[in-house]
Simulated scan of single mutants.
Amino acid sequence: MKNDKFKRTFNACVVASDALHTRPGGGKDVTRLRFADVQDVFGAMSCIRRSDNGELASHKWRMHSFCVFLDLIYFGRKTDMLDGLPGSFNRDKTLVLPPEETIEDAAGKAVPESVIDHMDAHLP
């Protein structure tokens, strides 16, 4: 179990590092990181794909990856290992993936039209 948490945290850090690498300065100077940088990290986490089939990872997986990365940032701040990191490089309530849209028919939860017609016909 601990090994899984380490792997997920490590993978989230790789995604974050790749995202920060594309930013001005490459994310190398933590004192220069701002909210725009954490937004780019979030954007990268939002697009994580499964390694086995290349499909977009589940909503839960992508959000959890972002959370474990930010938990690591919080730990670094708490232990004074990231004391130069600006407060603006932090989680924000706007950084949330929208709920996944599901098509009820595809999910097998839609009520067939014939059943709806039958129920409508028997309403008082």
Results as ranks from 00 to 15, higher is better:
1 M>A: 07
2 K>M: 08
5 K>E: 10
6 F>C: 03
7 K>M: 12
10 F>P: 07
10 F>E: 09
13 C>L: 12
14 V>W: 12
17 S>W: 03
17 S>H: 04
19 A>D: 05
20 L>P: 02
20 L>A: 02
23 R>F: 01
32 R>T: 15
33 L>F: 08
34 R>S: 11
35 F>Q: 06
36 A>W: 09
38 V>W: 00
39 Q>G: 07
40 D>R: 05
41 V>L: 02
43 G>W: 11
45 M>L: 08
48 I>E: 11
48 I>L: 08
48 I>S: 04
49 R>M: 07
49 R>W: 00
50 R>F: 03
52 D>T: 11
53 N>I: 05
54 G>S: 09
55 E>Q: 13
55 E>D: 09
56 L>W: 03
57 A>L: 13
57 A>K: 11
58 S>H: 07
60 K>M: 15
60 K>W: 15
65 S>L: 02
66 F>A: 04
66 F>G: 01
67 C>F: 04
68 V>E: 10
68 V>Y: 02
69 F>T: 07
70 L>P: 02
72 L>Y: 08
74 Y>H: 13
77 R>Q: 09
80 D>Q: 14
82 L>M: 15
83 D>Q: 06
84 G>Y: 08
84 G>H: 14
84 G>T: 06
85 L>E: 12
86 P>A: 02
86 P>T: 01
90 N>K: 12
95 L>R: 08
96 V>Y: 00
96 V>E: 07
97 L>A: 09
97 L>C: 04
97 L>E: 06
99 P>Y: 07
99 P>M: 13
103 I>S: 05
103 I>G: 03
104 E>P: 03
104 E>H: 05
105 D>S: 12
105 D>H: 04
105 D>K: 04
106 A>L: 15
106 A>G: 12
108 G>W: 02
108 G>A: 15
109 K>E: 13
112 P>E: 06
113 E>A: 10
115 V>S: 01
115 V>P: 02
117 D>C: 10
118 H>K: 15
119 M>I: 11
120 D>L: 09
120 D>Q: 05
121 A>V: 08
